[in-house]
Amino acid sequence: MCNTQAVTLASALTPVIDFVFPPRCPLCGDPVAAHGGLCLTCWDKLAVPSGTCCTLCQRPMGEGHGEDAQMVCAPCMAEPPKHAGIAAATLYNEPSRALVLAFKHGRRIGLAPMMARMMLMRIPPLEGRWLVVPVPLHRWRLLQRGFNQSALLAREIAGATGHDLLVDGLVRPRPTPSLGGLGRKARARILAGAIAAHPGRTAKIKGGNVLLVDDVMTSGATTNACITALRKAGARQVRIACFARVMDEALDTVRETVELPS
């Protein structure tokens, strides 16, 4: 079946599916217009970076910093990042946490298209050839969970942008324990050498631009390990795209609303 036929069939079946399974908000359960969306109340509870942000890490700068397109935050000036920019759909708060948990641990993989659309709203134009690469899972974790949530988001983003998906561009040759509750240095120590470029994909990575996709960015230890592996494989530059970013100090400086994606 070609793509056009599949879209036509899906459109024809939508009223039937909506009748049998009425679309509801995945957070509160209230009725919504269509599957794959949040109600207005839950949309308004999301924290979305807005206003003046650091051009290197997208950290909200708050008011009083003007509209300088080259504004760089103090942490990035003190320690220039290895990446070429971060695009976070939301800051990590209770609603975004609930979506991530439902997606990753609740196995509600149908949330991937909506979450990816929100990420796409924050990703700047990607000019030239780009590879979309997800943060990898160790094979045992992948077998246990049944899917890589970052790979599902990467697939949606690659399909929407027309760039190549390299789902196995990175691998985890050894398992790592949970990083929850650990500090930045401890996370970096555990992840040292735990992520590498796939030996069979280095030819594609070399000289290319990479969009690294993850669901949640916490301390940056995981993404830094991925960037190190990609740069070692010859990547020219690496940008990061995530659904939620842990940045508690910035929550009070953002406008906690988001425009509904089309």
Rank of each mutant, 00 (worst) to 15 (best):
S11N: 15
C25P: 02
A154P: 03
Q5W: 10
V32W: 01
D215V: 12
E67L: 10
A47L: 10
M1A: 15
P49H: 08
R245C: 05
R189G: 02
V216F: 04
G106T: 11
G29R: 09
V167M: 05
I240K: 00
A244E: 01
G207R: 12
L152E: 12
A34L: 09
V132E: 01
A225S: 12
G64W: 10
Q5F: 09
T55D: 10
I123P: 00
V216I: 15
M118Y: 12
N224I: 03
R139T: 14
L179A: 05
I109E: 06
D252I: 08
I109A: 08
R24K: 14
R117E: 08
V32Q: 05
T41V: 15
K185H: 06
L111C: 11
L230F: 01
A197S: 15
F21R: 10
G29C: 09
A74Y: 10
C226E: 06
L120G: 00
L101S: 10
V210G: 01
V72M: 09
F243R: 03
L182E: 04
C76K: 04
E94F: 08
W43R: 14
M121F: 03
L131A: 03
D164V: 13
R174G: 11
L152I: 10
S96G: 05
Q58M: 15
F243V: 10
H198K: 06
A34G: 08
I157D: 01
N224Q: 14
A221W: 01
R139Y: 08
V32Y: 03
I109P: 00
G162T: 12
G193F: 06
L152M: 13
L111G: 03
K82H: 13
E67S: 11
M114R: 14
A160R: 11
D168V: 08
A12M: 14
N209M: 11
V16G: 00
I195H: 04
A188G: 04
L230M: 04
P81E: 04
G128A: 03
N148E: 09
C28P: 02
V246G: 08
M114T: 11
A229R: 01
T90D: 07
L166D: 01
S178E: 10
R141G: 07
E156A: 00
R245L: 11
A6M: 12
T4P: 00
D215G: 12
M121Y: 05
L38K: 02
L27H: 09
E79I: 12
L191K: 02
V167Q: 07
V238T: 08
R122S: 04
T176C: 07
T222W: 04
T176F: 07
R201F: 05
L56Q: 14
I195T: 12
M114K: 06
K185C: 06
T55S: 12
G64D: 07
H105E: 15
H138I: 03
G85I: 12
N3A: 14
K104A: 08
H65A: 11
D252P: 00
P23S: 05
C73E: 05
H83M: 04
H105R: 12
A160Y: 01
L143G: 03
C42I: 01
E256Q: 14
G146R: 12
A88T: 00
A235G: 12
Q237Y: 02
T41N: 05
E256W: 13
P199V: 12
G62M: 13
P124W: 11
L38N: 05
A233H: 01
M77Q: 13
A116F: 02
I157N: 01
L9A: 15
N93Y: 10
A6E: 15
G128S: 02
K185L: 11
A225Q: 03
M121Q: 15
A34Y: 09
P125Q: 06
